[in-house]
Design a binder for these strands. Structure first.
Ligand code: FES
Ligand code: FES
Lengths: 141, 141
DNA sequence: GTATACTTGACTGATTTTGTCGGGTATATA
DNA sequence: TATATACCCGACAAAATCAGTCAAGTATAC
């Protein structure tokens, strides 16, 4: 399980975009300045967000990024998955690890971690960008 | 937020103890063999569990550890806290960090992470060691 | 044609994780 | 009393991951 700066920044940056508007493109430089996040790091993050079709890019002067969909449609699960911050609590998925002999017999805590994974994903699945900017008028689609 | 081997092993080892019995002491060597966890690493972990009064130790031959309380009383929150795997999702607690200017104004995602923290702690607060060994007779106190 | 701003890949320092090593000390049993 | 078992403690280290930087592009508005 992980939740690192990459995931946090992704959510923060997209919330910033959702908050400021989504008509004209928002440049990473603006987000960088407003939220205090390294510009070059943001570029890395947005590259992934674009590949996962969460944002669209517009190149050139006056360019930037726009949200691909309304804030209420964009769930946090999608964002975190896009930047490889999936909530994976199970140790046994990939290969047989010490103390966790995966395929053959499940370890004594296997079910626990699975339940946790579901629990957390539930949370992220219910939250949308819109929920983060509630201070603006409660608009819902 | 973190959930690493140390926390996993702590839960796994305690579940092992709860499962096998809690009358005569269980040696770390046995747990190590049964669960496939490094013995010396277990010693580190149990040192913390003891300091937090989750287990009691009995030295000497035939010694080992016993649970300090019934499995249904020992919640996972307590275990994870003991080995310093508290669920801390907020970035702004300790000091002013980049993109997260703590004390003065909360960042745009502050509330989100706080809600997540509560959500996860709820989960761990509800789960006890007893829940992990349900295959034995459902005894409840 | 020039400044803006997205695009891409490689690389690196710092930190954290996941343990190991080497020495202890207490106690049950022969 | 000798010995083996098993807890106790601190320092150390390899490996992995994180949090970015650096360098070199390409597309577009003006
Ligand atoms: S988490 Fe799946 S076997 Fe341990
Ligand atoms: S998480 Fe508290 S200010 Fe950002």
């Amino acid at each position: 399980m992980k939740l690192t700066s990459k995931g946090r920044y992704a959510v923060m940056a997209l919330a910033d975009m959702a908050q400021f508007n989504n008509v004209s493109p928002v440049s990473l430089r603006d987000i960088s300045l407003r939220q205090g996040i390294s510009l070059v790091f943001l570029e890395q993050i947005f590259s992934k967000l674009k590949k996962n079709e969460i944002v669209k890019s517009i190149r050139g002067t006056q360019g930037g990024y726009v949200l691909n969909g309304s804030p209420s449609q964009i769930k946090l699960t999608k964002i975190l998955n896009a930047v490889n911050e999936e909530v994976k609590t199970l140790q046994c998925k990939k290969e047989i690890k010490k103390g966790c002999n995966g395929k053959l017999t499940k370890c004594i805590t296997h079910n626990l971690w699975y339940e946790l994974e579901v629990h957390i994903n539930d949370f992220f699945e219910k939250k949308s960008l819109q929920d983060l900017i509630k201070k603006n008028t409660e608009q819902r689609i």
